[in-house]
């Protein structure tokens, strides 16, 4: 018996030793900054001054009353709406279309649709600037050709958020579609055939067979999309609009960055970051608890 335990101990030690490098890296680059952020959230600091002033909850109070933060949160919500439409609903339809076309066409189109994924968001933003430019860009030329007045996509508060979302969607679309196609590939053929025999037509086949079985993929993509709506959109915002016009395109991550690195309010930015972290932690926990129910292949 004691021999066994010592073996277990030895194994545990070896295991610990093996994960140690990863733990150190995680600790240094993820958890330590997280702890720092926590303390910074209660202080006033500009990152270069030697003293940090403890100010209690003042940062959080300011955040609660800030119209800019409210705007950034609402915008982040709109980015989610746009990107769920462009990156979940739309790719689902397209991948459904993929199931009915020939293999060669499928290969061609998946290459074409996936291509933007390899372009960096910074480059993609500049590329889209040439499309959006209403004076000398592609959209301007098309609009004029159709006899319409070209739209200032990036300078009009009504269009800018959608225009930014579209750039991110353009890039990530192919990736999400691949995920959906792969997910559909795992649905057993017999199930679909059986449903057909039972008289399930297109929409009902989707509602009762394909979508439930695709649920794990959809949930995964949904979370990736949430991350895009908060993080990915930062790059096009930064490159193209700076959050404008009049905060119409800002989002919560851009606001954190702007407070910390443009206005040098690192403490305040940390407080916002901490709240965002708490919100995402809650979402993740809820998702983990709930996922077992949604992502089940049985019952239903």
């Amino acid at each position: 018996m004691p021999r066994r335990r010592s073996l277990a101990t030895r194994e545990a030690l070896t295991g610990l030793l093996l994960v140690l490098p990863a733990l150190i890296a995680l600790g240094m680059f993820i958890y330590r900054p997280l702890v720092d952020t926590f303390f910074l959230a209660f202080s006033d600091w500009n990152m270069v001054r030697s003293e940090r002033t403890y100010i209690g909850l003042a940062n959080f109070q300011e955040m609660a009353g800030s119209a800019t933060i409210r705007r950034a949160v609402v915008n982040t919500g709109w980015y989610v709406v746009w990107l769920v439409g462009l990156l979940i609903v739309f790719p689902l339809f397209v991948s459904a279309g993929f199931t009915v076309i020939g293999r060669r066409a499928r290969r061609f189109f998946s290459g074409v649709i996936f291509a933007p994924m390899v372009v960096s968001l910074g480059i993609a933003s500049i590329l889209w600037l040439w499309i959006y430019n209403p004076i000398s860009g592609l959209s301007g030329a098309i609009w004029r050709e159709l006899g319409w007045t070209p739209v200032s996509w990036l300078s009009n508060p009504a269009t800018v958020l959608g225009a930014i979302a579209l750039i991110v969607a353009w890039k990530a679309f192919g990736y999400n579609m691949m995920l959906f196609i792969a997910g559909m590939g795992t649905i057993p053929r017999e199930l679909i055939d059986a449903a057909r025999v039972d008289g399930a037509d297109g929409p009902r086949l989707w509602r009762y067979i394909v979508l439930p079985l695709l649920a794990p993929t959809v949930v995964f993509v949904l979370f990736a999309t949430l991350a895009m709506a908060t993080e990915y959109v930062f790059t096009p915002i930064h490159v193209l609009t700076g959050g404008g016009p009049t905060d119409a395109s800002t989002n919560i991550v851009f606001e954190i960055w702007r407070q910390a690195f443009r206005w040098f309010r690192v403490g305040y930015a940390s407080a916002i970051a901490l709240v965002v972290f708490a919100v995402f932690l809650t979402i993740t926990v809820v998702q983990m608890l709930g996922s077992e129910r949604v992502v089940s292949y049985e019952e239903r």
Binding site: L129, N133, I135
Partner: peptide
């Protein structure tokens, strides 16, 4: 005067459109 971003004005001017 076009209501656009500065990068767009610059593109337009250099393209002979402004």
């Amino acid at each position: 005067l076009p209501v656009v971003t500065d990068a767009e004005q610059e593109q337009a001017f250099l393209a002979g459109q402004l």
